[in-house]
Design a protein around this nucleic acid. Structure first.
Lengths: 220, 220
DNA sequence: ACCGGCGCTGAGAGTCACCTGAGCGGCTGC
DNA sequence: GCAGCCGCTCAGGTGACTCTCAGCGCCGGT
């Protein structure tokens, strides 16, 4: 992980460690490049705006040197750089700040999966299946099509494993800690999810716990 | 970080920030307690000698409230308090002043790595079960539906483990110290609880101790 | 037995949390 | 450039929940 915003980098690193990854952090382009050359990493998360060398330059340099470690580029949302440019330099994936941790996690998994032998990453809750690697969801044998946000929300709820997730907690993790909009989005998206994973099957696994949050229950 | 020596607190906070941590500082027990309740922190560094509430008291209070955020207690080296006492209150680690910053850092890292100690999430009292994680309550095999307030009250009574909870105490913990309404609510909600956890089963486990408060007794 | 106080309860009102449908801007694919 | 999807906001509606109030019963003391 190469990012000069130390708070953010530390927070993400912690989160990744909690998910079972082994993470090294650097805060500028030179050190990042050096690390990437030395170590053999499964993936690199790289901010574009870095002291020292620019992120794109790091990426380009590694590729020129024959290093094809999967790279995920982070950019500021309204920045002057766009996805095309990032991918031009040889990056494998692209994410703009602010982003939700769950999305980052899913993309990192996808990157590693692409570069390494596939691992079973699928989560289940009753007849509900969710594969963060392929970004697919199923209820029983039926495919369920989810949008990115719906997927992130469902993934977060499944990760909770039956425990109640409070609304602020959901906002922090699925929409990002810097989300400033209407907290009502959570209710709206819970509604969307119910229409896709419960209603068509006559189930009610996504329960609201009034005054506390939401809970995902396995169906019989 | 809760420490009334402002220089020291600021120095340590700076050091931690430089290491990539995100730090909030408070200088007295009350504010520290309030912060700890509000925010979701990875760890708390807590001095024992504090204006307002004593550090041990803060620690104990958080634990009583079900908050198991890792806590590292700081004490004066030759003080009257010892490690056993600190750990008794529910602290996870212990460090006496003066200490080296590197040691503090290492311990904080260890605490966070370890995470919140795996605690038995489900509480019982006779045939009564209550799970704060899933927010579910059961009497024997029967599910009991509780509202948020009822749940909080029952949780508080169960945590008392058979001891009497006084009405003011209940008001402070279940309704909050800033509750200004009619203290009669407690009686009302005790009534609600009895109708849900006792009456349908012919029990009388939620007993009133006239002039003292209420007590939750295990059934046979 | 009487009386004061503490606790209990039913009714009711106000508030709050949640759900939903409509709609809008932005992005994507055609 | 247009159609469609996605993400989000907003406002209205509804039912659940919380709390107040007032009257009454019960307990304990004299």
């Amino acid at each position: 992980m190469v990012d000069d915003e130390e708070h953010l980098a530390a927070a993400i690193a912690d989160g990744l460690v909690a998910e079972g990854f082994d993470v090294d952090v650097e805060h500028n382009g030179n050190d990042g490049l050096w690390r990437a050359r030395e170590g053999s990493y499964d993936a690199i998360v790289l901010d574009v705006l870095l002291p020292g060398i620019h992120g794109y330059k790091v990426c380009r340099t590694l590729r020129d040197e024959g290093n094809w470690t999967p790279i995920l580029i982070l950019t500021a949302k309204d920045g002057e750089y766009d996805e095309a440019e990032a991918l031009d330099t040889g990056a494998d994936d692209f994410l703009s700040k602010p982003f939700s941790f769950v999305v980052l996690l899913a993309r990192i998994r996808a990157l590693i999966r692409r570069g390494a032998p596939p691992r079973p990453t699928v989560m289940t809750c009753g007849t509900l299946e969710l594969d963060p690697g392929t970004r697919r969801a199923k209820r029983g044998d039926a495919d369920v099509k989810l949008t990115a946000r719906e997927f992130a929300l469902l993934e977060f709820l499944m990760r909770k494993d039956g425990n109640v997730a409070s609304k602020p907690e959901i906002l922090d993790h699925v929409w990002g800690i810097d989300f400033a909009g209407d907290p009502n989005v959570v209710e709206v998206y819970v509604g969307y999810l119910r229409k896709k994973i419960d209603a068509p099957f006559g189930l009610e696994t996504l329960q609201t716990v009034r005054g506390a949050g939401y809970r995902l229950e396995p169906d019989a």
